[in-house]
Design a protein around this nucleic acid. Structure first.
Length: 106
DNA sequence: TTGTTGACTCTGA
DNA sequence: CTCAGAGCCAACA
């Protein structure tokens, strides 16, 4: 166990994302409300995710039901591909049915 | 310590 | 329905 702890808030966010099963998605606002921060902070935590993590960041989308455009540019395309691989279907406008696919944390 | 930036969300038109 | 602006919190230099 390291003396220097990483951001506990980030760990809480990652822990929640790990609870999302395949085939379901969650929103930044949902996680933000649970951990007690704003949606921006959740998105910031996702951006700070290290490579090779066990966090299905791809299942985290915005309140619009779509993937968020990242500074990387092609990251959102990869995310959409990963979600489709899990059995999720995108709308004609590239949206997901949050009403059906939204995961509720226990 | 302050200031800037960011994978967001809300409200109004 | 879409487009635009403002607000919010946390991490980094």
């Amino acid at each position: 166990m390291p003396h220097k702890k990483p951001s506990p808030l980030y760990q809480s966010i990652y822990n929640l994302v790990r609870q999302v099963p395949p085939g379901y998605v969650t929103t930044y606002g949902q996680i933000a409300q649970i951990v007690g921060c704003t949606a921006r902070t959740v998105g910031f935590a996702m951006a700070a995710l290290p490579a090779g993590n066990d966090v299905p960041w791809q299942r985290v989308i915005n309140s619009q039901g779509k993937v968020s455009p990242r500074t990387d540019g092609e990251g959102n395309i990869l995310q959409r591909d990963l979600l489709e691989a899990e059995g999720l279907c995108f709308n004609q406008k590239g949206k997901l049915n949050l009403e059906k696919l939204r995961w509720t944390f226990v």
